[in-house]
């Protein structure tokens, strides 16, 4: 059975976001998810950072302090090779979950 939970979903979103953008800070990730999802998904900003840090400890992402376009110092995150693998696995797990949930919902 595919394992999934809310934490996993947030991680999946972050991974995907970082895969599409080479390097982003936390706020940028939030903006990206909100924009791309057409404001359907709202990231709970307080939960974002524990997730990012956990992912960094797991070496899915790496971080670096740099300047934003408005010249503000911020911590930029980017995907590692491990992170890319994790993304593939997480995407597959998500598809399984969606399939499973849909199967249940469409059961008649």
């Amino acid at each position: 059975m595919a394992k999934n939970d809310l934490q996993g979903t947030l991680e999946l979103l972050i991974l995907k976001t970082l895969a599409q953008n080479t390097s982003l800070h936390g706020y940028g990730i939030v903006l990206h998810i909100e924009r791309v999802s057409g404001e359907l998904l709202r990231v709970e900003e307080g939960s974002l950072y524990p997730a990012l840090h956990r992912m960094e400890q797991n070496q899915w992402v790496r971080s670096q302090w740099a300047l934003t376009e408005t010249n503000r110092r911020a911590k930029f995150y980017s995907l590692t090779v491990t992170g890319r693998k994790q993304l593939t696995a997480a995407e597959r797990a998500w598809e399984q979950t969606v399939k499973g949930v849909q199967a249940v919902l469409h059961f008649a």
């Binding site: 900003e45 307080g46 939960s47 950072y49 524990p50 840090h53 956990r54 400890q57």
Partner: peptide, 21 residues
Amino acid sequence: RFGNPTTARERVEHVDIATGL
């Protein structure tokens, strides 16, 4: 939008302590 900043900071710290490299 952010929620309680102190709580958020503590949560990040805990992640770092429990799992940090």
